[in-house]
């Protein structure tokens, strides 16, 4: 499973990133690109659905969703936890 590509696809379905998800670098700030609080909630929901995980409250902060790299790290942790 290519997590990063999946994350880009989920981002692409978010209003703020339609058509530009593939051009984002790993460390571009998603908030600077126009992700707002509602957008980040929608993004969390879409990621939970795509990866069949639930973000615990401890991960529900701006840092976890600030960049593609941060999202991948958060998702990877949850997938590993579920697999264990």
């Amino acid at each position: 499973m290519d997590i990063t590509q999946d994350i880009r696809e989920v981002l692409g379905s978010n209003e703020a990133f339609a058509g530009k998800a593939d051009r984002l670098s790993e460390d571009d700030s998603l908030f600077d690109m126009g992700l707002d609080s509602f957008g980040s909630v929608q993004l969390m929901l879409a990621l939970e659905e795509r990866f069949d995980v639930e973000f615990p409250d401890s991960l529900l902060n701006r840092k976890s969703f600030a960049t593609i790299r941060a999202i991948r790290e958060a998702v990877s942790t949850l997938i590993c936890r579920d697999a264990a």
Partner: peptide
């Protein structure tokens, strides 16, 4: 309305 959006992902009441 803002709280309503946040509650879509919050998991527990602490």
């Amino acid at each position: 309305a803002n709280t309503a959006k946040l509650l879509l992902v919050q998991k527990s009441s602490g």
